[in-house]
């Protein structure tokens, strides 16, 4: 058995002048949950859709489950589970009818009722798909990706636009897949999602993979520091904060300064002294661990969303 479920080498895809995917190389081991992380327009979906055979790459090599992938190969597709980022289903068919329809495409499938329970759609089984909420539609889409017991599952932004509860339900399903030893490739622009679910993460921006590793590695590489978020108030400047003891970097987001500190007590005490000396009234402060979000910001200089 091939240990690599997926190998992508120097994948390129342009739309006119826009290089959507510009030389992407990575591989995913069997049983791994691999995340592709990046802001909208980074090239995540184009990359995944090239792998899925929905788009024809300009160049590059794609080996899926040990063989070069042929888009028009129904037999081979039976081994894959694909959830598309944007997809539609026959709007007037019910959830159960859609499940039956897709079940007919495969030989070996999960039992419909069990799958409905798994994705929590049992009560909505007779609802037309047009009447499902965003979260329900997403879970149905996930159910369709899983019903053929796929060896390799592609999930393209599976939780985008969902409320926290619906997101948690999908995370649980991905954890289940991982326990069953299935290989999962998922894209997301939620950092916390990548941290929660993925064994390894590729950070994409402008069609390139700019960083690749486990979430912990990435954070450790870029942040040996702790983040202190400080409300912006009059008189408080990024330059002033950067001059405080043990501060590595200062960024701004959502009306707050984020101060990365190698020694929180030293930085804090410096901050208080400085505020007193300048008669500043400090606002709210939060101390937290650095996240992949911070990593992205640090690498690209931009926030992910």
């Amino acid at each position: 058995m091939n240990e690599m479920a997926l190998q992508v080498t120097d994948l390129r895809k342009s739309y006119g002048d826009l290089k959507a995917v510009d030389g992407v190389t990575f591989s995913v081991a069997t049983g791994e949950v691999f995340g592709i992380l990046g802001p909208n327009g980074a090239g995540k979906t184009t990359t995944v859709e090239c792998i899925e055979g929905l788009r024809r790459p300009d160049s590059g090599e794609i080996v899926v489950l040990g063989r070069a992938f042929g888009a028009d190969d129904p037999e081979f597709r039976r081994r894959l589970g694909i959830q598309l980022q944007s997809t539609g289903l026959y709007p007037k068919l019910t959830v159960r009818e859609i499940m039956r329809l897709f079940t007919a495409f495969y030989d070996d499938t999960l039992e419909t009722d069990a799958l409905l329970d798994l994705v929590g759609l049992r009560e909505r089984q007779n609802a037309p798909t047009a009447k499902l909420s965003g979260g329900q539609a997403q879970r149905l889409s996930l159910a369709l990706a899983l019903l053929n017991k796929p060896e390799l599952v592609f999930l393209d932004e599976p939780t985008t636009g969902l409320d926290p509860q619906a997101r948690r339900a999908i995370w649980d399903l991905v954890h289940d897949l991982r326990r069953e030893g299935r290989t999962v490739v998922l894209t997301t622009h939620y950092m916390e999602e990548a941290e929660e679910l993925c064994d390894r993460v590729a950070v994409m921006d402008h069609g390139h993979i700019i960083e690749l590793g486990t979430p912990r590695e990435l954070i450790a590489k870029y942040f040996r520091e702790t983040a202190i978020e400080v409300d912006q108030v009059d008189g408080l400047t990024a330059e002033g904060l950067a001059a405080l003891p043990a501060v590595g970097q200062v960024t701004e987001e959502n009306g707050r300064f984020v101060v990365f500190s190698a020694a929180v007590p030293k930085t804090m005490s410096g901050l208080f002294d400085w505020a007193q000396a300048h008669s500043l009234e400090l606002g709210q402060m939060v101390v937290r661990q650095a996240t992949l979000e911070d990593v992205f910001l640090k690498i690209t200089g931009r926030r992910i969303r």
């Binding site: 055979g53 037999e75 597709r77 894959l80 944007s86 997809t87 539609g88 289903l89």
Partner: peptide, 13 residues
Amino acid sequence: KKVLRRLAVAPLS
């Protein structure tokens, strides 16, 4: 509505 797209990635000719 991207129904055709979903069918395109199913194991169908």
